[in-house]
């Protein structure tokens, strides 16, 4: 079984090929280049390196969100186009869970987060090797997240490049219960993404067409439109 994994949900990029549970190759990069330019050449380079033709791939794993809207769409568009034309399934994995997998060995709660601006975050919380979900993937305020984490009375590991933006606040709320992953753990790895995808139910190839990112937020214009409609109905 050959997997191709694609992770483009935020600024870093990761692509990996896993064959029968073995990671053959993985690229992780964190350079300021747009995914639109880099993803396809990186996939081409990686497949060449491991000497696998695209037709040999059996399934594709992609980070489905949350994250940067454009980043997610580039990864998902490439994943679903490859999957559709190769007639193979595509499996979506939470991009927060992919990041959490970097802290899988931590004895406590793992909290991956992305900055969503204006003191808001995309975040979730998991626990243990199995990454049992403690807090659902969601979009919300950093303050509320920290309050919820505080109630757990457990040590908490924060993972992700954006953690730095909230470090003071985290320490203020959680004190020495807060742990911070080192920088090598802040980048999502497509090999972890594939490992998580392997644990999920395999969708059918018919599901490829309807596969879309999980934005965890409706578009602003749509939110405003819904508000207007509600007003009109009152």
């Amino acid at each position: 079984m050959i997997w191709l994994g694609i992770e483009t949900s935020n600024a870093p990029l990761s692509v990996a090929v896993v064959k029968d549970g073995q990671v053959l190759a993985e690229i992780v990069q964190n350079i300021k280049q747009t995914h639109s330019v880099t993803v396809m050449p990186t996939i081409e380079e990686l497949l060449k390196k491991v000497n696998i033709r695209s037709e040999e791939i059996d399934a594709i794993a992609v980070a489905e969100g949350p994250g940067s809207y454009t980043g997610l769409r580039i990864g998902v568009t490439i994943a679903k186009t490859l999957a559709w034309t190769l007639k193979i399934p595509v499996v979506g994995v939470s991009s927060l869970k992919v990041l959490a997998a970097n802290g899988q060995l931590f004895n406590g709660i793992i909290c991956p987060l992305f900055d969503a601006r204006r003191q808001n975050v995309y975040a979730a919380a998991y626990k243990g090797l199995q990454l049992e979900k403690i807090i659902e993937e969601h979009h919300g305020s950093i303050d509320e997240l920290l309050l919820r984490l505080d109630q757990t009375k457990e040590p908490i590991l924060f993972v992700g490049l954006d953690v730095e933006n909230f470090k003071d606040k985290i320490i203020e709320q959680l004190g020495d219960r807060a742990y911070f992953a080192n920088s090598s753990h802040h980048l999502p790895r497509a090999s972890k993404l594939i490992a998580l995808a392997e644990d999920q139910p395999m969708p059918t190839i018919e599901d490829v067409h309807t596969f879309v990112p999980k934005y965890h937020r409706i578009a602003q214009a749509e939110a405003e439109w819904i508000k207007e409609q509600k007003k009109g109905n009152q």
């Binding site: 396809m40 580039i74 186009t81 034309t85 190769l86």
Partner: peptide, 18 residues
């Protein structure tokens, strides 16, 4: 730009496979 990127990345993925 966000709209263009969907067509472009789909086109590249398709062209690559075939």
């Amino acid at each position: 730009v966000g709209a263009l990127l969907i067509g472009i990345n789909a086109a590249k993925a398709f062209a690559f496979v075939h």
